[in-house]
């Protein structure tokens, strides 16, 4: 790790300005990724801006029946919050599968989103829930769908000096269920071979009214599996259409060969995870 200047501004707008003012900066949130990258020498900023002092980015609010999660909210808070558990259980489920408790105590929602890593669990679940991301540049803010936010591995829509200040979720729908499933080799804490998030809404007769399926770690960004979702619409979710959704999700995935497995194997895992996530989501929606 190289020496660097360190600042901990008290507001998001000041943090954004500090980041905008020089070229060679790093925004630090929970540090679970940033500190590793600094340590490995992969990042060598001259200035590290610690967002932790901007307390306005903490906390969970419930505007209009939805939820606004401040960027500094820890993954552990998502996992353990009663409000999250009631309104968006899939988010708590995805949060509970991130790293270890020590990692979840430090890592933040804003960091997980802004880092743009295609393997992480929480962004996949957030996209499945239809989340919007709120980005702040100086004093101005904008919102965009999280599904459009990721451009590639570790590449996002954030402009120079812009930070993620919050993530917002639409109000939960009736007869809706979700499931996040993940597969790792070795310990649970290791990077996944693949993950899958599914959120489905059923009509009064039990037919699938709406579905969103997202797969992670098998493409440059978390991928919205649109054909998989379409395969579920208009009928009750059972073995046949869940399998078909899993099959097309695996076909549409864009995995690469790496240490965690070949592209062939990752597609197999996507099939297993999507089928499992979709069926469990449907069971939960019906319950």
């Amino acid at each position: 790790m190289r020496n660097f200047e360190y600042a901990q501004p008290a507001t998001a707008s000041e943090a954004s300005r500090l980041l905008a003012d020089s070229d060679d900066t790093l925004a630090l949130s929970g540090g679970t990724a940033a500190v590793v990258l600094l340590h490995l020498g992969l990042l060598r900023p001259s200035l590290v801006v610690d967002l932790g002092g901007a307390t306005e980015m903490q906390g969970i609010e419930r505007p209009n029946g939805g939820m606004r999660v401040g960027a500094l909210t820890t993954i552990r808070t998502l996992e353990t919050s009663a409000a999250v558990a009631v309104a968006y259980p899939i988010l708590a489920e995805a949060a509970s599968q991130v790293g270890s408790v020590r990692v979840r105590n430090a890592a933040t929602v804003g960091g997980a989103v802004a880092y743009g890593e295609p393997q992480t669990d929480v962004p996949a679940a957030l996209i499945a829930l239809g989340a919007e991301v709120e980005a702040q540049h100086g004093d101005s803010r904008r919102s965009l769908p999280l599904a459009d936010f990721f451009h590639g591995p570790y590449e996002t829509d954030l402009a120079h000096g812009e930070i993620v200040s919050a993530v917002s979720l639409p109000a939960p729908q009736a007869r809706t269920g979700g499931c996040h499933a993940k597969f790792t080799i070795g310990s649970m804490e290791h990077k996944p071979v693949a993950n899958a998030s599914a959120v489905v809404t059923l009509d009064a007769d039990g037919a699938c009214l709406a579905a969103r399926v997202v797969v992670g770690a098998v493409g440059p960004t978390p991928l919205v599996a649109e054909r998989a979702a379409s395969a579920l619409l208009g009928a009750p979710i059972g073995e046949a259409n869940a399998r078909e959704a899993a099959r097309v999700a695996a076909e549409d995935a864009e995995p690469i060969d790496d240490l965690r497995g070949s592209a062939w194997y990752k597609r197999r895992i996507v099939r297993v995870l999507v089928e499992r996530a979709v069926r469990r989501a449907a069971e939960r929606a019906a319950a």
Partner: peptide, 16 residues
């Protein structure tokens, strides 16, 4: 070396 850090080298933990 491709497995050059604990990010790419899984170890057993309590979960295993």
């Amino acid at each position: 070396l491709l497995t050059s850090s604990l990010l790419d080298y899984p170890l057993p933990t309590m979960s295993t």
